[in-house]
Design a protein around this nucleic acid. Structure first.
Length: 434
RNA sequence: GCCCGGGUGGUGUAGUGGCCCAUCAUACGACCCUGUCACGGUCGUGACGCGGGUUCAAAUCCCGCCUCGGGCGCCA
């Protein structure tokens, strides 16, 4: 395959071998066309029955859709061909025959349910618009990584098999680890905190998280990809600055490098990176604004969490990405630090897309005594987390950070109706395979 | 976890008690067609999730199971 030419690179005058899938065969009688598709696009192969070798024509026309073929021949300029060029073949080989009946239609003429598509993801990703989602996802991750490096972060990888969870054992997948009870980690939270106290100071991780919640919604996964950031010597406002930079970098990367894929998704015109800083609403301002919309049957009072309905009302009112800051301490986790001058108020923050929560973060509690108290107040035994807490006795700097759901970022960026669209092989309440 | 709505050829659908040995599109098979680009034309193959019940009669009504989607809770 050394001499294989991508369809997009086939120039008139070249003699090439192209390799790919039979997208379609149009047999007009005396002449027929085989449309060959590879990762770069499609090219038309001309088959003139009277003028070409019978075996060659028969081989080509007998190939089923989606069979893998190689075609060697001369590339010619041809205005009547869809891409302006056409191959006149010297040889056609069927490398891998496809069954005539396909479980879904990669040409996209007939829709398939998401479930059918996920069961046949390989075929599903032969469609340009589906492939585009994952090309864009890859660009998002690339741009995010680059932005983290610009922010002076070191990329880390922390264990996914753990002895204890982050906030208790309620939503963890239990596994057996050489006869011992263990869990799939729900968040790198504790590990990344341990690393800000190390010589690394400022870290990020992009990796899987596992949540055993039995939810069944278009925005939850039981295995998701978390984009995590944590840095020493910054507070929650510094963490929000970093968050803004990373989210914007993701959008900008896609805008700059993915026009073709945006076109495949038919959103090239409307797509634009968010500009400027995201509004930072305090929790108090947020509930006032929600109440002012009059969308809710019952007014929110201080201490209420924002319901899905409230999030939507607020998102519509704000109309762009926004932070919600200064949450009541009681509805944020124990490892989030309270404000020094008001311990009813937490430094926790969320980054919201108008339609969905993307990020949760805050300044962390770095004071040993307060941390131990926090564990006890949550009803957790600090002893179980000694590997974590003891490092707070050996010089843990003030620090802050956040976690961003990669799939949620891609989902909201592309306006996908279901988060499963943003994962190759989603894991949800009823899907464990493929 | 609670609530709601679905499951009909390979795929996507129409059909809400007899008019249905089930509609349409696409795919598949056969034949015709020398410039298609969702090629076109003729003919054909192919389906009511599983189990039980009601009824003279069930794709259609009832029950259970399986399965898919959605809303909420909660969250990334």
């Amino acid at each position: 395959m050394d001499d294989r030419t991508y369809t997009a690179d086939a120039e008139p005058g070249d003699t090439v071998t192209v390799a790919g899938w039979v997208h379609e065969i149009r047999d007009l009688g005396g002449i027929a066309f085989l449309i060959l598709r590879d990762t770069t696009g499609k090219i038309q192969v001309k088959l003139e029955k009277d003028e070409m070798d019978d075996d060659l024509v028969e081989t080509a026309l007998d190939a089923h859709r989606e069979s893998v073929v190689t075609v060697t021949g001369d590339v010619e300029k041809e205005e009547r061909a869809p891409t302006g060029v056409e191959i006149t073949p010297d040889s056609v080989d069927v490398v891998a025959e496809a069954d005539p009946e396909l479980p879904l239609d990669p040409s996209g003429k007939v829709d398939a349910d998401l479930s059918t598509r996920l069961d046949n993801r390989t075929l599903d990703l032969r469609k340009d618009e589906v492939k585009a989602i994952f090309e864009i996802r890859a660009e998002v991750l690339r741009a995010v990584r680059e932005q983290f490096r610009e922010l002076g972060c070191t990329e880390i990888n922390t264990p996914k098999i753990v002895a204890t969870g982050t906030e208790g054992g309620t939503e963890l997948f239990p596994i057996t680890y050489f006869g011992e009870e263990a869990f799939m980690n729900q968040s790198p939270q504790l590990f990344k905190q341990l690393m800000v106290g190390s010589g690394l100071e400022r870290v990020f991780e992009i990796g899987p998280i596992f949540r055993a919640e039995e939810h069944n919604t278009p925005r939850h996964l039981n295995e998701a990809t978390s984009i995590d950031f944590e840095s020493a010597f910054i507070d929650h406002t510094g963490a929000m600055d970093a968050c803004e930079a990373v989210v914007q970098a993701a959008y900008e990367g896609v805008e700059e490098n993915c026009q073709e894929h945006l076109e495949a998704l038919d959103m090239a015109e409307e797509f634009s990176a968010p500009e400027g800083n995201f509004p930072r609403l305090s929790y108090e301002e947020a509930i006032e604004r929600v109440n002012a919309t009059g969308e809710l049957d019952e007014q929110l009072v201080w201490g209420d969490d924002l319901s899905t309905e409230a999030e939507h009302a607020l998102g519509e009112a704000v109309g762009e990405h926004y932070f919600v800051t200064d949450w009541p301490s009681e509805i944020k986790p124990f490892y989030i630090k309270d404000h020094d001058d008001d311990e009813e108020l937490s430094t926790g923050f969320d980054l919201m897309h108008p339609s969905l929560e993307l990020v949760s973060g805050g300044q962390r509690e770095h004071r040993y005594e307060h941390l131990i108290e926090g564990f006890e107040q949550q009803g957790l035994e600090p002893e179980a987390f000694e590997y974590y807490t003891k490092m707070f006795r050996y010089g843990m700097p003030p620090h802050a950070g956040w976690g961003l759901g990669a799939e949620r970022l891609v989902m909201t960026m592309l306006g996908l109706g279901n988060i499963r669209e943003a994962v190759l092989f989603p894991r949800d309440r009823q899907r464990l395979s493929p």
